[in-house]
Design a protein around this nucleic acid. Structure first.
Lengths: 192, 192
DNA sequence: CCTGAAATAGGACAAGTGACCTAAAAAACT
DNA sequence: AGTTTTTTAGGTCACTTGTCCTATTTCAGG
């Protein structure tokens, strides 16, 4: 098989396993088994575990970028686009209740491990942060656009964490409704 | 030294290390070194790693219980007590920015590891959840007391996560102000 | 078909882990 | 002081981990 294909399979499998079991707790053997290759072959494609982590983060960045560009083409107004962001919680409800937020849990783990990849993981937050800021600016909230973005980002993180702790409750849906209501209540024009 | 004292030292050291480096990533040797005892002695007090985890969770539960009972005696109204809860984020600002929330990060890790201690860790959330519910009930919000408690719990979690990701920003203080304003804006009497 | 590069397999290694064991030291009690 | 119990130290074990190495297979280009 071509090297790039195998590489993709490895990154995809590692992406899932890191999400489901955590980065530190996922071993090379596990990834290799899921992909269906030998551990030895593994090292032909990735020399260190950190290299896989970098590749996984790069993949997650790319996946989110395409997701956000789809929003830009399907949603007319910035308000609708932010609403789309909030609704990720519903789209991924099942996985979030089981594994939490893929971005938040990865950053939290790497931060706790004092792992160099922490900085790369923060870039996943940055991606949404900057994008959200831009949307709020387009809504006219030029001065506090970043604060509003951080606010909605934090709310999403908190909801994901508690939905993970209490999966069998309507909590997540309730909070999404509240966040959407908050978004609607925001004045159309900012305070500049 | 008396066994109970050594045991306490171990639990205290493990509490810190689990918070700073994570449960899975903390080894017996590290805890023993911090306490200043041999690894062999360790097993006289705790037969398995899970036993230490249980003891640490029990300690955290007890610490929070005493904290909340202090609030009850120092704060007159339930509204002031909830405000005190919100202000934990400020009290522990430095540690939260470095290590995140001790309750949230522990639960997230155990959930990801599929560790049996996940249920015990959830009881830490329960402690605050039930207490918050009670405060909102006392404020007159009998019907949606639990929703309000979960809401403020989730906001705190989200703020802690993002403050950990962006420690060099006024974000945490801003959000605490917003949460306190939200609390003030709640009607004194509920919707029953 | 042949040849050299690309890709794969599987074994080996050192380090670290949780767990266990036994003997020595310390403390408590008679 | 002597004896029993409590507490401690340090070695050992089986296992897993990330990493490395070498031999074999696959496969494309001449």
């Amino acid at each position: 098989m071509a090297a790039s294909e195998t590489r993709q399979s490895i990154v995809a499998a590692a992406d899932d396993l890191f999400y489901e079991n955590g980065f530190d707790h996922t071993s090379f053997a596990q990834v290799a088994e899921v992909v269906g290759i030998s551990r030895g072959n593994f090292y032909y494609h990735f020399k260190t575990k950190d290299e896989i982590l970098d590749a996984v983060i790069e993949k997650r960045l790319e996946d989110r970028r395409t997701m956000m560009s789809q929003w830009s083409s399907s949603q007319e107004t910035p308000r609708q686009r932010v609403a789309q962001f909030i609704r990720i919680l519903l789209t991924n409800e099942a996985k979030i209740k089981t594994y939490g937020c893929p971005i938040g849990t990865l950053f939290t783990e790497l931060s706790k491990l004092d792992h160099p990849g922490e900085d790369s993981a923060r870039r996943l937050f940055d991606l949404f942060r900057i994008w959200l800021k831009r949307q709020f600016e387009l809504m006219g909230h030029t001065r506090d656009a970043d604060d509003l973005g951080m606010h909605i980002l934090a709310r999403s993180q908190g909801v994901a964490t508690l939905a993970n702790a209490y999966p069998n409750e309507p909590f997540l849906k309730n909070e999404v409704q509240q966040m959407l209501a908050w978004l609607e209540a925001l004045e159309a024009s900012g305070n500049t």
